[in-house]
Amino acid sequence: MVPIPRKIRVLIAKPGLDGHDRGAKVVARALRDAGMEVIYTGLRQMPEDIVEAAIQEDVDAIGLSSLSGAHMTLFPEVVRLLKKRGSGEIVVVGGGIIPADDIPKLKRAGIKAVFGPGTPLGEIVSFFKKAGKGA
């Protein structure tokens, strides 16, 4: 038997109050169709919930989606809590309505990539693939 390649596991979450889940769901499906296991945690998640789920599910990466403008508070908080729990190796990325000049700040805070509106799904999928392999 050929050894089965290790599955990439990704957590897709909507932090904060924002209910716009079109993007999160489309990305979740695209990652599934690319052969990954996607844990979708649904709406209105606190950073603490997201980090706990990521650890229990032992994911390679976390995708955060926010369209309400709360990203500067919520995204870095996820990275901080992961580090605190000794799971800093989990890759965190963000997507949504993110002003251009917030992107470098998010990256400095440990968000590995930011995907704005119009990002091709292929680009997102290959990013997660790479993140999964590196983990």
Partner: peptide, 23 residues
Amino acid sequence: FDMPTLYGYDTDEPEAKGEFGTC
């Protein structure tokens, strides 16, 4: 209105964290 208002939270409630006036 901003997100906390849309969900019936006051600005200073914990659920409103990071969301004041953003959208």
